[in-house]
Design a binder for these strands. Sequence first.
DNA 1: ATTGACCTTCTCGTTACGTAAAGGTTTATA
DNA 2: TATAAACCTTTACGTAACGAGAAGGTCAAT
Lengths: 256, 256
Amino acid sequence: MAMEYTVQKLASMAGISSRTLRYYDEIGLLKPMRISSSGYRIYGPAEVDRLQQILFYRTLGVRLESIKDILDAPSFDALTALKEHRQKLLEKRQQLDLLIANVEKTIAAIEGRCSMSDTEKFRGFKQRLIEENEQKYGEEIRAKYGDEAVNQSYEKFKNMTEDQYREYENLAERIIETFKAALATGDPGGELAQKAADLHRQWLSFTWSTYSKEVHAGLAQMYVDDERFTAYYDRHQPGLTQFLRDAILIYTGMKK
Amino acid sequence: MAMEYTVQKLASMAGISSRTLRYYDEIGLLKPMRISSSGYRIYGPAEVDRLQQILFYRTLGVRLESIKDILDAPSFDALTALKEHRQKLLEKRQQLDLLIANVEKTIAAIEGRCSMSDTEKFRGFKQRLIEENEQKYGEEIRAKYGDEAVNQSYEKFKNMTEDQYREYENLAERIIETFKAALATGDPGGELAQKAADLHRQWLSFTWSTYSKEVHAGLAQMYVDDERFTAYYDRHQPGLTQFLRDAILIYTGMKK
DNA sequence: ATTGACCTTCTCGTTACGTAAAGGTTTATA
DNA sequence: TATAAACCTTTACGTAACGAGAAGGTCAAT
């Protein structure tokens, strides 16, 4: 209950080496609370908390210099930072899931149960690229992100079983039919249109591992912007694409 | 469909830099299939597969030199290696889950919904500690009770939720307290001592998948024989270890 | 009083690349 | 057909985040 730790004590508690703590002191990332009369580093509760923050960021692969900047920024707020952490960790876990899926697919491929394209072989490794993109283009990336997601879903599509595929096509037909019926009512917020939007969500979940309102809405917008999609939907009924987008925007709460 | 790639092509496909590929060539980790007339590196399907393996190992933090040794070993079998990979990745995900739980706990602590001990603050960072523990104590326990039990106990430990873990720690404290009270009565066969022994059984069941009287009794004897355990229990109260063993021997029916 | 387990600073080494520099090759286009 | 853009090559130096000593001071207990 002393709440004061020497290098070794703190290090073993945190599962790191004492050298690491000295290094963090050296670069000014984590300075001890005080120095004892004999020159020993003494860490207090504030340092314990800061170390915890440091390790959080480290697991995300953030460089120490950046961690320093982040923690020392006057705008730094531990709570919101932690919530961002949680988000990042969840993303990391999803990426891990992708990798695991990839390993399992590779096993299946070796055992001859299915085949794999070269691009497919590297799925799940591209975390860095995604991060870079996110940092570079920020929010603007949504269109491109959507495109990549579509590609991925196409790949996954190839992996479906016969039964799944039939159900998938069936659902696609019902979506079109329902949207057509809804279009006749003219109300994208109406019951029928919302039912169709929900079917569309189910259809997405078929090939998409993770559903989010934002992506769903973004995709709907893309349908309108991309003439390939517009052609596909409007072939069934002119004006269907726009109506579909409006219904989905309402469904996802992006529009009243 | 050419199945032949230049550095850049392969690099962008795998989500790494071309420099990385040149480096891998330099250290002999991944040599191109052939060199074109103009000196360009050309990679074929075999190299693609090898790169995939390399990246699998890299995500696990294996050093490149070790990866080379592993892949070049005549005993190397891609299939079993992949199955090990899957296992490791699943472990990594569990560790991530622990970390996420930790972040959420920290958020709750900041919001004042609960408090956190210093050791608790680093839970989830300590993959290394589990390994150390395995090296220190694993061998001895393994010798006595077999690899299976230890493996299972570690697995179960890793699978515990934060809440379960707290209950587990809580139980450990209550055991000590109850045994201390029982020691005051001086009777290892008395009601209080038997209650404590039962708590100890519950505690064991937390991490041990299969309970048996024999193992329970054997463990109690080990507590006395092994000075590390003796030191731990006697620190609370001299003579506690012996008393604890006697109580458990009676509880398990190994002694009248 | 001595042993062993701590602590200190200082220095050098390592891993896995990033980042030019200086130059040859291929391909698209004007 | 010229010329630029976009590839490729080797060489060589820089870096991040420590690990691993060496050489020596300090603390607690026997």
